[in-house]
Structure formats: C-alpha cells, structure tokens
Computed example of a mutant assay.
Amino acid sequence: MTRRAGLTAGPNASANETATRETVESNSEIIAVESETRLRYRLIHDQLKNAILRGRIAAGLVLLEGPVARIFGTSRVPVRKAFELLHEGGLLRTFEGRGYLVVGPDGPDGPDPQPLRVPLSEAALGFDEAPAPLALPSISERIYHDLEATVSIGIAFGHFRIDESEAAETFGVSRGAVREALSRLRDLGLVEKSAYSHWMCGPLTARAVRHDYELRSLLEPAALAASAPLLSRDTLNASLREVERAIANPERVDSEALQRLENSLHVDCLRCAPNKKLLETIGHAHMPLTVNYAFYNAFDLHPDTATLIEHRTVLRYLLDGDANAAADALRIHLQAGQKRTLQRLKVLAVLPEPDLPGFMQRIA
C-alpha cells in the first residue's frame, strides 16, 4: 500500500495527529491570551494617561492594581503593566506605601504630592460613568494604527501600491481585515482605489499640501465659530493645560503626543459644529498632517514652540467666549502651518527612503 506524504502511518497515526493538533491549538490559545493581555494594558494605559494629562485625576491619588482592575473589568496583569508604563513615562511615582502616586500639576519635575488614599471609583479615575469591561478592538482596528503610520511615512517619499495579500501576511490577519482598515484610511484621504481596484497612496506633493491647507483655511475657522458656543469649558481648560505643559517641556512631547494636541484643536474643538458635511469635508483634507508625523519620526524631534503658542492663543480666545477671534487665530495658525509643512516636505524629499514593508510597492 502506498503511504501518502505528510501523514503518519501505523496504529498510532490517529493519536499522533490528535496530539499535534491539540498542541497547535494550545499554542494558539496562549498566543491569543498574550495578545489580548497586551491589548488590554495598552487600552488601560491610554485611558489613564489621558485622564492624568487632562487633570481629571487628583494629584497624589494612590492607585492600586486590584481596585483599578475591578473598575476596568479585567485581571491585575494588564493593570500592572499599564502602571509600569505610566511610571516610566513620568505620570506615576512610587512611594513608601503600596501602589503608585499620580504626579502633581507640575509634572514629574515638581514636588512629591501627599498620598491621597480614597476608595477608587470611576469618578476618582476621571470617568463620568463606569467604563464598560474592556472590549478588545476588531482585528482591523488592531492593525489600523500600524498601517496608518506606514502609509503616512510612505506618501512623503513617493507613489505606492499597497498589496492587500502581502499586507495580510505581514500582519498575520485576513485580507478582509486589511481591506477594512484601508477603507478607513480612504475616508481620511490617505489612500485611494485605482480604476483596477488597486489600493494606492501618495505621492504627497507641495501642490497637494497647498490645496488641502487652502480648503482647511476656508472651512475650519467657520466650523470652529459654529462649534465654539457648544464646547465644554472643562474640555477647553484641559486642552489648554496640556498645551501649557507642552510649551514648558517641549522635549517631553513625542510624535504621538503632538498628534493628540493636533486632534484636540483640529478635531475635538470643531466636532460640535452642526454641519456634519462640513466636518466630513475638513476630515478629507488632513493629509498634510502626515508630513509632520513623518518629519518628527524621521528626526526624533519635538514640536516647535511657535506651533504650541498658536494653539494656546486659539484656546484662550475660546475660553474668553470670543469665537470670532478664535476663528481668526485658527486661520493664522493654518497659514503658518502651511509654510512649516512645505519646508518639512522639502527636507523629507532629500532623505533616503525609509525601510518600508514589502506590501508598500513603489510605482515608478
């Protein structure tokens, strides 16, 4: 009898195959659990970091793993990892007692706050209501930010076709998950589909930058003026505090923090405008922001003070209740931003092309 390649012959064949399958399934489960834990600690870290930076958690509050884990509906393992990252980032401090202390308003360089031991609740952690048990993002959401970062850097260096199959293999997901993530990037204007249904991105040219800034200079001030009366003062004050901290310590602001500052002004402050079509059109013109992302990542730089001061001016006018002055200040900021972005695009043009993954295929 002919033995088929790849199969184990003999009376133990079935047992061997079963054992192998169980081992593979067990390893897959372990990988899935580890992946889930990584996602959970990142979600907890991001939510606590945002609340601390916005001043929604009292300085000196003692954070303990158990109570925080109960609030988030998770185990202590991801909470412990989130605390460690926040400590490394200077937002939590160790002290003689158990747990960590939330830093004071002066940041990690300020004096140690007095320990504040109160029962930990949703309100104490800066949440208006109890956070739902951590729902892990879909597969497409898990790869979205990595894909966005790759495309954002790539378009500053040329014209690329994105191979869906190779991207799926790179990320270890299905083509459907990649397609869903790319569709979200298309909504932002970062990628497009060709007549032959190929995903394309770039090149980000000086002309495209000028056109997008021209559109934004016309529409964003109008959206801000319409949104201003509906904005929360607490939200504005929190944004202003974050900008003030960035101005005082710009070296602590990485590209991720800068993106958060940009979104605070150019997305969050506009979102209350009742004309949603207006906001959708503005959202399609945010591609030049990727130049700044690529620029700061390429040189490991921090934001220039002029940009931060312009942000602060807009926020102060909003807090003063002067929507028209805020809109004018935003227009001036966008005009200055166009000049800075075009200068950065020139610098990027003379840099060697970064190492991009294989699914980014250059088009001559």
Rank of each mutant, 00 (worst) to 15 (best):
R3A: 05
A5S: 11
G6E: 13
A9M: 10
G10Y: 04
R21H: 07
R21E: 10
T23P: 00
T23E: 13
V24Q: 14
N27W: 12
N27P: 01
I30G: 02
I44N: 10
A51S: 14
R56N: 03
R56H: 04
L63S: 09
I71S: 12
G73L: 09
T74G: 05
S75K: 14
R76E: 09
R76C: 00
P78I: 07
K81Q: 14
E84L: 07
E88R: 14
G89M: 10
G90K: 14
G90L: 10
R98C: 01
P105N: 14
D109K: 15
G110F: 03
D112F: 01
R117Y: 00
P133F: 07
I143P: 02
H145D: 12
L147Q: 10
I153W: 03
I153F: 02
G154E: 15
A156M: 07
A156V: 01
F157V: 07
R161Y: 00
I162T: 09
S165F: 00
G172P: 02
R175W: 00
G176E: 12
V178W: 02
R179E: 06
R179A: 03
A181E: 09
L182A: 05
R186Y: 00
R186S: 04
D187V: 11
L188Q: 15
L190C: 04
Y196D: 13
H198G: 05
W199Y: 01
C201D: 08
L204G: 03
A206Q: 12
Y213V: 01
E220W: 02
A222I: 09
L224K: 14
A225F: 01
A225Q: 13
R233D: 04
D234C: 07
T235Y: 05
N237V: 05
A238L: 05
E242D: 15
E242P: 00
N249E: 13
P250S: 11
D254S: 09
A257C: 03
R260F: 02
D268M: 09
P274S: 11
I282N: 06
G283F: 01
H286G: 09
L289D: 11
A298N: 09
F299E: 03
E310V: 01
E310L: 10
V314G: 06
L318P: 01
D322H: 06
A323E: 13
A325D: 10
A326H: 03
L330Y: 01
L330A: 10
R331I: 00
I332H: 15
L334M: 14
Q338R: 15
T341A: 03
L345W: 02
K346S: 14
M360G: 04
Q361A: 08
